[in-house]
């Protein structure tokens, strides 16, 4: 087993995720302790947080795997994938944050156009028709069945 050739690779993304998980757990634990030290507050949160942080320590070495050149080759994705995923996440975030300010209708319509483009629909006319029809149907359809109004700008 020890003979495995190859070199140690740093999985930066995984490290980042672990840092996020560990950071948020630590922050939550300290925040909970600041609220109260009584068992009625900490009886589950504290042991679970400690366990989770220990598990983080156990996982950290897995961010530095020894991989053969072949595995590294297979593991690398073209940067364009990341760009598309990043763009989709960014527009999805913008969509969720702007719903109430610019209205569900406008936000949905814009997100559909951008989303369809990012996901690979390059025919503009098709994109526009679909986005418009989808938005109108969804706003009226959903509006009819849920018990409170969506903030809207145009529809």
């Amino acid at each position: 087993m020890e003979e495995k050739s190859g070199r140690i690779v740093v999985m930066w993304g995984h490290l980042l995720l672990l840092a996020f998980i560990a950071g948020s757990i630590l922050y939550y634990w300290l925040d909970a302790r600041a609220v109260s030290l009584r068992p009625n507050n900490l009886i589950l949160v504290q042991p679970t947080a400690i366990l989770a942080l220990l598990l983080v320590l156990a996982v950290v070495p897995q961010c530095f795997p020894r991989l053969s050149e072949e595995e590294i080759e297979r593991g690398t994705e073209p940067l364009s994938h990341f760009a598309r995923i990043g763009a989709l996440i960014a527009s999805f975030t913008a969509f969720a944050l702007s719903l109430e300010t610019i209205g569900f209708d406008v936000a949905t319509w814009l997100f559909m156009i951008v989303g369809l483009y990012i996901c690979g629909e390059r025919r503009w006319w098709l994109n526009l028709i679909f986005s418009t029809v989808f938005t109108v149907l969804l706003i009226y359809g959903y509006g009819a069945i849920i018990p409170f109004p969506f903030p809207l700008s145009i529809l």
């Binding site: 763009a87 209708d105 319509w109 156009i113 483009y117 526009l128 418009t132 109108v136 145009i154 529809l155």
Partner: peptide, 28 residues
């Protein structure tokens, strides 16, 4: 990303969408 997609296009699209939406809107 795509330079065919200008601000003017955007405005045009938006106005078409707005017009279509007004026609469809039942909220008179």
């Amino acid at each position: 990303m795509n330079n065919n997609f200008t601000r003017r296009d955007m405005l045009r699209i938006a106005s078409v969408g707005a017009a279509a939406a007004t026609v469809a809107s039942p909220a008179i």
